[in-house]
C-alpha cells in the first residue's frame, strides 16, 4: 500500500517537474547540503561541549539557550529541502538502503536529544559550568556525534544505486533491508 501511494506521489506533475528540472533540483539539493554546515555544524559544537572536548569554560546553557535556535532553524531548512528531494523520487528513496538506514539513525538521534533535554539538561544549572559534564551528558554528546556523522555519510550515499531493487542479484539481507520483494510483487 505504501508502494502504491509513493508510486502515485512520484507521478504527480510537481514531482515529475522537480525531478526533471534543470535548476530547481540542484538548488534544493545544494541548499540541503550547505545547511549541513549550520545544522550539523552547530550540533557538533554543542556535542563537543557536552563531551568536555571543547569550549570547556563556556557554560552548556549558553549553547542550549543561544545556539540551539540556530540549530532549529537549520533543522527546518534541512527538513523542508529533504522532503522536497524525497518528493522528487519517493519510490526510489523509500527502497534505498542508505535512505532507510539514514531515517532510522535520525530517529535514534531524535530520541537521544529528547532524553538529554528531559533528563541531564534539566539539572544543567548544577553542572553546566563544569569543564567536564556528567556522564549522562557525555554519553548524549557522543551518541549525537556518532548518529549525525552516520546520517551525513548515509545521506551522501543515497545518490548511489548499488543496492537498488532494479540492480540484481543482491544478497538476501540487502533485498530485505531495501524491501525489494514489495516492488517485484
Amino acid at each position: 500500500m505504501i508502494d502504491r501511494f509513493l508510486a502515485w506521489l512520484g507521478e504527480t506533475p510537481w514531482s515529475v517537474a522537480l525531478l526533471e528540472s534543470l535548476y530547481a533540483w540542484p538548488l534544493i539539493e545544494s541548499t540541503h547540503v550547505l545547511t549541513l554546515g549550520l545544522f550539523v555544524g552547530a550540533t557538533i559544537m554543542m556535542d563537543l561541549r557536552l563531551t568536555g572536548l571543547a569550549f570547556r569554560n563556556v557554560p552548556v546553557q549558553s549553547f542550549t539557550g543561544r545556539l540551539l535556535p540556530w540549530t532549529h532553524a537549520g533543522f527546518i531548512v534541512m527538513t523542508v529541502t529533504g522532503l522536497l528531494l524525497f518528493y522528487s523520487q519517493p519510490l526510489r528513496y523509500y527502497h534505498n538502503v542508505f535512505f532507510r538506514v539514514k531515517v532510522l539513525v535520525m530517529i535514534a538521534a531524535g530520541i537521544n536529544a529528547f532524553v538529554f533535554h528531559r533528563g541531564a539538561h534539566r539539572r544543567a544549572a548544577a553542572w553546566g559550568a563544569d569543564a567536564m559534564p556528567p556522564r549522562a551528558a557525555r554519553i548524549a554528546g557522543t551518541v549525537s556525534l556518532t548518529a549525525w556523522a552516520l546520517v551525513v555519510v548515509t545521506g551522501r550515499l543515497i545518490a548511489y544505486n548499488w543496492f537498488d531493487c532494479d540492480i540484481q542479484p543482491q544478497p538476501g539481507w540487502v533485498n530485505w533491508l531495501a524491501g525489494c520483494e514489495a516492488v517485484t510483487e
Binding site: 547540503v33 549541513l36 554546515g37 549550520l38 550539523v40 555544524g41 552547530a42 550540533t43 557538533i44 559544537m45 563556556v58 557554560p59 549558553s62 549553547f63 543561544r66 545556539l67 540556530w70 549525525w148 556523522a149 551525513v152 555519510v153 551522501r156 550515499l157
Partner: peptide
Amino acid sequence: AVHLLGLCLLGGALLVVDLRMLGVGLTGQ
C-alpha cells in the same frame, strides 16, 4: 562522505565565531 563530514565541522567552527562577531549566537561569551 568524509569531505562532507569535514564541511559540517568547518561550518560549526566558523559559524560559532562568525555569528558571535555579528552580535548573535553565543552572545554571553
